[in-house]
Design a protein around this nucleic acid. Structure first.
Length: 655
RNA sequence: CGCGGGGUGGAGCAGUCCGGUAGCUCGCAAGGCUCAUAACCUUGAGGUCGCGGGUUCGAAUCCCGCCCCCGCUACCA
């Protein structure tokens, strides 16, 4: 039987992920870390509630659905299912998958808003500033990027409209006092200091409504407004345990014992607005917020979609399985191991196939796999695969096992996955040393049967402990080792992390190596060949086409026209912007603002016949009205202008 | 004076808060063993801890100044 519950409960969350995106290393990292912690606490016999889910509101979701020709509802259903599929593949055992479009969540959000409206923590005012329609985000003047949305670089609108605000500013002092009293609340320590500095710099009240509802939760009593997605999203942690029904059996989980997230969403959201919201609601705060770091590529670049260098852990695992010959499930566990072992949780780390393969060979194949694969055949050959009685002299690894147990527990209590894994690997090293020191083959030759029994028993016993300890990180691997030791059907439990608890008489199975060593030279050849192939495919068909297609009708909605550039002048107060006057065959030239100044001299543009998006929504950029957009070529900087290669009348249609 | 992170043997990192012989993994070299996936075990080579100054009996660790790299803009955790 599993260890009796200590009566402790453990509520752990990840952020809910935005449905539009596809999962990559970052999301997986948070979720795998949460899963490992959840599994560890279950192993300790605690009642665990592990929640993850999807964030499904915002107008951008509607657009994404349209782009795929789907009903929004159908689109989010599909995307949520795809996230669930990913977690299944990555061996994530969550207890609750929450979606923000669930009726329960909508009700919870409306209850929060109504409560805070009544208490005055949410108030109506007028919002003045810049607004990016597609992003549904407000910006201050100094946040704009060349007068455009800093996120999507599309034009922003100046707006002054009624909106609802959450009185974050009123909570600055209480938040700071709380952080003071609860130094463990925000981790790691550097992040905590960052948050404190951020709050001491002054909090603004957060605008938590949007006027064009689209796809979102309606503000109670103000149906013309919807709740801003971030405010909506944070509440999921409450919804998941039954809020607002405080009689619900699940409500006893509240508050979370730990909430994991990437460092980018700690400061502004999870460590300020979120605790302030809870204070306003009069609810206990989570015990700990833990922000982890970013994964960068081995060349030091941050992984991002726009750079096209993101790693999908599932794809990585499949590659690893392919290169090594391990099963895909084992390869998934290896990726989990890598992510939690390679880098101290909380710091940034670099992800590369080279370091993954390095760890796979050095740690998994050579240390863990090898110990398993030298122990089992010894048992098979010398003892017909039956675990012998320990007998006198057994217990040679008792110390090492006890040490590993204490260190794993201590490290995981501090969310130090790396330290915990290092401790387990020290036990493995002790096991490998033990074989060399005790030389079972020599004992066999010299017919020292009792001593041989003791050594073989200790080795198998050590592996049994390793299987338990490694389970939170590599659940499939742990189960496989468990079964090979003949323990199928026996539930692993923390109390069995102790020397001498392996039952004698069970039958082991040798089996194929779990982690077949990767031949690095061959691996590189194959990876390079694969890369060339994908590059070729990418050249054959522009990559964006595969992702999102637009219908012909949608294309036709763009009014593209040829226009002759009459004037070019630097926009005052800007390094990057030109103000252009363009003849589109209309009564007066069009004024267009374009970010070309860093890469083109005025004379490069003057007199050219360029392509203009003539029906682009007008925008004011750095105080200058812009009535169109010029097409240019270039990933992030304009490298070349799109021009007509023949003389054409100004205003000619481009099609 | 924008903010933050970092500069430690060939590579990647720990140690820096609470000064006291510089540590880990990988790689490299030699040896051992033969149960094992050329894996495992032992030993070794390799560092004036970015630069300069200061405090101290003693500094990678504290103080001052300087240099260099990287984020903070990329709808991404």
């Amino acid at each position: 039987m599993a260890e009796t519950s200590t009566g402790n409960k453990f509520y752990i969350t990840t952020p809910i992920y935005y449905v539009n995106g596809r999962p990559h290393v970052g999301h997986s990292y948070t979720t795998i870390a949460a899963d490992a912690l959840a599994r560890y606490h279950r192993l300790r016999g605690e009642e665990v509630f592990f929640v993850t889910g999807t964030d499904e509101h915002a107008t951008k979701v509607v657009h994404a659905a349209q782009a795929q020709g789907l009903d929004t509802r159908e689109f989010v259903d599909r995307m949520a299912a795809s996230w669930q599929k990913t977690w299944e593949r990555m061996h994530i055992a969550y207890d609750r998958f929450i979606r923000t479009t669930e009726a329960a969540h909508v009700a919870a959000v409306q209850r929060v808003v109504a409560t805070l409206l009544a208490s005055g923590d949410i108030y109506q005012d007028e919002y003045q500033g810049w607004y990016c329609v597609p992003c549904e985000t407000y910006f201050r003047e100094n946040e704009l990027c060349e007068g455009t949305c800093p996120d999507c670089h599309r034009p922003v609108e100046q707006v002054a409209q009624p909106a609802f605000f959450f009185r974050t500013s009123a909570y600055s002092d209480r938040l700071l006092a709380y952080f003071e009293e609860h130094p463990e609340f925000i981790q790691p320590e550097t992040r905590r200091r960052e948050v404190i500095a951020f709050i001491e710099g002054g909090l603004r009240d957060a605008c938590i409504s949007r006027q064009h509802p689209g796809w979102g939760i309606t503000m109670p009593e103000h149906p013309e407004h919807s709740v801003y997605v971030w405010f909506d999203a944070l509440i999921n942690y409450l919804t998941a345990v039954g809020y607002p029904d405080e009689q619900a059996p699940t409500w006893s989980w509240w508050p979370p014992d730990i909430q994991l997230m990437g460092k980018d969403i700690l400061t502004r959201f999870h460590a300020t607005i979120w605790p302030a919201m809870l204070m306003a609601l009069g609810l206990p705060l989570p015990h700990r917020l833990f922000a982890h770091g970013y994964w960068v590529t081995d060349s030091g670049d941050k992984m991002s979609k726009s750079r096209g260098n993101v790693m999908d852990p599932w794809e990585v695992a499949k590659d690893l399985a392919d290169l090594s010959g391990a099963t895909t499930a084992v390869a998934v566990d290896a990726v989990r191991y890598f992510l939690l072992r390679e880098v101290t949780f909380g710091l940034d780390g670099s992800f590369s196939m080279a370091s993954l393969l390095g760890r796979f060979n050095a740690d998994l194949a050579n240390d863990l796999g090898n110990l398993l694969n030298r122990t089992l055949p010894l048992l098979e050959r010398y003892r017909e695969g039956i675990i012998p009685e320990p007998g006198p002299g057994a217990g040679g690894l008792r110390e090492a096992i006890a040490q590993a147990r204490e260190r794993v527990a201590a490290c995981l209590d501090h969310v130090d996955f790396r330290g915990a894994l290092e401790a387990i690997w020290e036990l493995l090293a002790a096991g490998n040393k033990f074989v060399d020191a005790r030389e079972p083959w020599r004992l066999r030759r010299e017919a020292k049967q009792v001593e041989l029994d003791a050594v073989l028993y200790d080795l198998a016993d050590c592996l049994r402990v390793v299987a338990i300890l490694v389970g939170p990180f590599m659940p499939v691997v742990a189960e496989e080792i468990w079964e090979r030791l003949g323990l199928a059907g026996v539930p692993p439990a923390w109390k069995d992390v102790e020397a001498g608890r392996l039952p004698a008489g069970v039958r082991v199975q040798v089996g194929r190596p779990l982690f077949p060593r990767v031949d690095l030279d061959r691996a590189w050849q194959r990876l390079e060949a694969k890369q060339e192939k994908t590059q070729k495919v990418a050249e054959d068909e522009p990559k964006e086409v595969a992702a999102v297609t637009v219908s012909y009708e949608e294309f036709q909605r763009l009014d593209l026209r040829a226009g002759k550039v009459l004037e070019v002048e630097k926009a005052p107060g800007s390094d990057k912007l030109y103000r252009l006057q363009i003849d589109l065959g209309e009564e007066t030239p069009r004024q267009v603002v374009a970010g070309l100044a860093e890469n083109f001299a005025p004379e490069d543009i003057q007199g050219k016949t360029v392509v203009v998006v003539a029906n682009l929504e007008p925008a004011t950029i750095r105080g200058i009205r812009s009535y169109g957009m010029i097409l240019a070529v270039g990933e992030d900087k304009p490298l070349a202008l799109v021009v007509a290669d023949q003389e054409v009348p100004a205003g000619s249609k481009v099609r």
